Simulated assay, not measured.
Amino acid sequence: MSTRTVLHQADIARALTRISHEILESNKGPEGLILLGIPTRGVTLAHRVGRLIEEFSDAVIPVGALDVTMYRDDLHRNPTRAPQPTQIPPGGIDGRVVVLVDDVLFSGRSIRAALDALQDIGRPAAVRLATLVDRGHRELPIRPDFVGKNLPSSRDERVNVHLAEVDGREEVTIES
């Protein structure tokens, strides 16, 4: 098995800065925004994007976590991690622009599960999707609004996102 690094720490920082600016521009400012990261690394990325948006706009952006484990349609086929707590910031999501943040977009099934989970929590004004890596291979009609890096890959390759807060190192790799 071979592993190659496709994004280094500086590349990840640049991508998150761009995503943060794009979110602000798309929303015409920080008003009404809420970021919900999909565990595990999506939560870390959401917090980073939230801090960047705050830095650029001088507005506090609520950041939370949305666990989608029990909403997945492939639980019977794939072993999965233990559910993580869902943390919705005070004030909820009703009438807000929710930006879902994930590390890698692949089939779209996690995002479909996230949309189902959101229905149980409230009714946002809009839902947007930000992902650090879009590797294609969609099985559902889901498209990200904000992408750090489009990374074409084959189905048998594995894309790994490593973040300092979770893994002690900062890089995106592809294993083949």
Rank of each mutant, 00 (worst) to 15 (best):
H162P: 01
A65H: 12
L33P: 02
P152F: 05
P62A: 12
A130S: 12
V68F: 13
R18V: 09
V49W: 00
D58N: 15
D134H: 09
D73L: 14
V127M: 11
G148M: 03
R169D: 10
I23S: 01
A164K: 10
S153K: 02
Q87W: 00
V68T: 15
I121D: 09
L132F: 10
L151P: 03
H8G: 09
Y71N: 14
G92I: 06
E54D: 08
L45F: 08
L52Q: 11
M1Y: 09
L132Q: 08
G50V: 04
E31N: 14
I34F: 05
T3W: 10
V63Q: 12
I19Y: 00
S20T: 04
Q84T: 14
P30E: 14
R77M: 15
V159D: 00
S20W: 02
N150E: 11
V172E: 02
D103C: 11
L105Q: 04
P152L: 07
D167T: 00
E55G: 11
D134F: 07
D73Y: 10
G50E: 03
R135Q: 05
D167H: 07
E170C: 03
G168C: 05
A15C: 07
V147W: 01
Q84M: 14
A65R: 10
T5E: 13
G92C: 09
L129I: 12
D74P: 08
E175M: 07
D145C: 01
V63F: 10
S154M: 06
I142S: 06
D58A: 15
T17L: 08
G42D: 07
R72Q: 10
L24P: 01
A126H: 12
A59G: 09
R158G: 00
H162C: 07
E31F: 09
